[in-house]
Nucleic acid binder design. Structure first.
Lengths: 217, 217
DNA sequence: TCATTTTTTTAGACAAGACTAAAAAAATAT
DNA sequence: ATATTTTTTTAGTCTTGTCTAAAAAAATGA
C-alpha cells in the first residue's frame, strides 16, 4: 500500500460516506488538488487491487477491503491528532499537517499502544469520531447550528470545517468544544444568529453556523 | 528534501564519522542494500544541492548543510526510539523499523515538543547519543568489551550492533544497559571472555564482546 | 431532438529513483 | 611495468505517479 494509494482511499472514504456512495472523478480531483486524469489512473489501480469498485464514467466506491484500509488511515490520523493536542501542546488548528504525515506510519503495535496510551479516545480534537480497529465508530446525533430553531439549546460537539482560519476564529470568540450554546435570535436579512455561550451573548454569521455541530440536549 | 535523499545523507553520516570522512560508493550501496549505480546517481544529486562533496572516483563526504540535515534525521530517529520504549512499551529490539519511518516526519514543533515530553534525553535505548538541534552531541569515552584487559571493570553503556537478534540474545543473557561488567578471564583459543555481571559469571564470545561498549570506571 | 457544455477517459510525455549491462578508472598482483 | 581484478561511472530501461492535450461519453438546454 503506497502513500498515494492511501490518500486516494481516504478521499473516497470522506467524499462518499465511508466509501459506500459512488464518488465522481472530478470530486476526488478537487479534494486532492490534482487533475482528473491522474485520478482516473489511480482509480484503475485501486480497482485492480480490489480496493475500489469502478465502472467507467460512473464514479468509484470502496470495496470492503478498501473501506477497512481507509478507516485504518483515518483512525491513525485522528489518534495522532489526540496525541499532539493532549501530550505535545499542539492546538487544534496546528495538528492537521503533521497528522497527514503520521497517518501513513505502518506498525500495528504502534497504533495499538498509542491508542492505549491516550486512554482509547473516541473523538479527535475537532469532535470527529475515531474508528476502532474494525473501522466501526458510533456516530453521535448532531446537527448544524444553522439548522437549529430559536430557543434550541445544545452542546458544541464538532466542526464541519476544520481549517486553521476557522478554528482560530472560534478560539478568538472563545467558542470551544463542549460549550453549551442556546439560539436566541435569527436575523432574517443575513441569517446570522445571536447565541448565548459562556454566560455571554455573541453574534455568528450564517457561514460560521454552517460549520458548527450541535448535539441537542 | 525527499525521503530517499534523507536516507542517503544518513548513510554517509553513519559511515564517515558524522559525514566528515569520504565514503565509497560501494560502502553506501552495501549499507543501503542497493546498487552502486543508484548510489552514484543520488550522490550527484546531493552534490548538486550542496549537501555533499563529491569528486568522481574519490568517494563522498557531507557539506556543513548535509551534516546538519543528517544529524537532524538521526536526532529524530533516536528521540522516537526513546518515545517508543519509554511511553509505548516497545522493547529495544522492536524500535528500529518504526523509527526509520518516523524519522522522516517534518515538523519542527513536533520534534521540539517530543524532546521536552521525553525530558530531553541524551541517549537512545541502545546507548547512542541524541544530537541536539545544532547536530552536536557529547561523545562519551567508551571502548569495546573485547578491547578490555583482564581485571578491567566498567559499565555496559551501548551496543555496536543494534540488530534484533543480537539485542534479543543480550536480553536472554540478562545483559542490560547500565549493568556493571568485570572481565575475569580471556580464553586464548577463541578469545571468548568470562565476565562478572549481575552477581553471576557468564561466558561471552569474541563476536559478542565486539559489539558491547564499556565505559571504564 | 439535436447542439452545446461538462465530465471523464485516453494517449503520450516527464521526473524521481531504481535497475542491468557495459565502459572506464583505479587498485592489485605478478 | 603490465595484466588482472575491483570499483565506479555511464548509458539506457523500467515503474510510479503526475501532467497536458485531445478524444469520447454523459449531461444539459433550447
Amino acid at each position: 500500500m503506497t502513500l498515494s494509494e492511501e490518500n486516494y482511499l481516504k478521499a473516497i472514504y470522506h467524499l462518499g460516506k465511508q466509501g459506500n456512495d459512488a464518488v465522481s472523478t472530478n470530486a476526488i480531483a478537487e479534494q486532492m488538488d490534482t487533475k482528473a486524469s491522474s485520478v482516473t489512473d489511480m482509480i484503475k489501480k485501486l480497482a485492480e487491487k480490489n480496493l475500489a469498485n469502478y465502472i467507467k464514467y460512473q464514479g468509484v466506491s470502496l470495496t470492503e477491503l478498501g473501506r477497512l484500509t481507509a478507516a485504518s488511515v483515518v483512525r491513525k490520523h485522528r489518534l495522532w491528532e489526540v496525541f499532539l493536542v493532549d501530550k505535545l501542546h499542539f492546538s487544534w488548528d496546528e495538528v492537521h499537517d503533521v497528522a497527514e504525515q503520521l497517518e501513513h506510519i505502518k506498525s500495528e503495535k504502534l497504533i495499538d499502544e498509542l491508542d492505549a496510551f491516550l486512554g482509547h479516545p473516541k473523538e479527535d480534537p475537532h469532535g470527529d469520531p475515531i474508528p476502532d480497529k474494525d473501522g466501526n465508530f458510533t456516530k453521535t446525533a448532531k446537527i448544524l447550528l444553522s439548522e437549529c430553531k430559536i430557543g434550541d439549546e445544545g452542546l458544541f460537539v464538532g466542526v464541519k470545517d476544520s481549517s486553521a482560519p476557522f478554528l482560530q476564529y472560534l478560539d478568538k470568540q472563545h467558542i470551544s468544544l463542549g460549550n453549551k450554546i442556546k439560539v436566541l435570535h435569527k436575523e432574517v436579512f443575513d441569517q446570522s444568529l445571536e447565541i448565548a455561550i459562556n454566560a455571554s451573548i455573541i453574534n455568528v454569521s450564517k457561514k460560521t453556523a454552517d460549520n458548527i455541530y450541535i448535539q441537542n440536549t
